[in-house]
Amino acid sequence: MKNPTFIAELHTKLGAPSSEAVESLRLLKAFLQLAPGQRIEVIEMVERLTSESHPETDRPLS
């Protein structure tokens, strides 16, 4: 996506992405670069952290 014309057209149509959207895409890119076993570990850790902060739901996110 280094084509300045394409980027300018997207910016005109969609506006500037929020910083949260940009950070989410960076995290997704990093997640996809992990080995499958590491991805599972990350998912399990996030589910554990989520269940600790929201004890009313004891079902996994996935």
Rank of each mutant, 00 (worst) to 15 (best):
M1S: 11
N3V: 00
N3H: 02
P4E: 05
P4K: 05
P4W: 06
T5C: 00
F6G: 06
A8D: 14
E9R: 11
H11G: 00
H11N: 01
T12F: 12
T12P: 04
K13R: 15
K13P: 01
G15V: 07
G15Y: 05
A16D: 05
P17K: 11
S18A: 07
S18I: 02
S19H: 13
S19F: 13
E20H: 14
E20G: 14
V22N: 03
E23R: 12
S24D: 00
L25C: 06
L25W: 07
R26D: 01
L27T: 09
L27V: 06
L27D: 09
L28E: 08
K29H: 14
L32W: 03
L32E: 08
Q33E: 14
Q33L: 15
Q33P: 09
Q33R: 14
L34D: 04
L34P: 05
A35N: 02
P36N: 02
G37K: 13
G37I: 01
G37T: 10
Q38R: 15
R39D: 03
R39L: 06
I40A: 07
I40T: 10
V42A: 07
I43Q: 03
I43N: 00
M45Y: 09
V46R: 04
V46W: 02
E47I: 02
T50L: 04
S51A: 11
S51H: 12
S51T: 13
E52I: 11
E52D: 12
H54L: 09
H54D: 01
T57I: 15
T57Y: 10
D58H: 04
D58I: 07
R59A: 12
P60C: 04
P60L: 09
P60W: 05
P60Y: 03
L61W: 07
S62D: 14
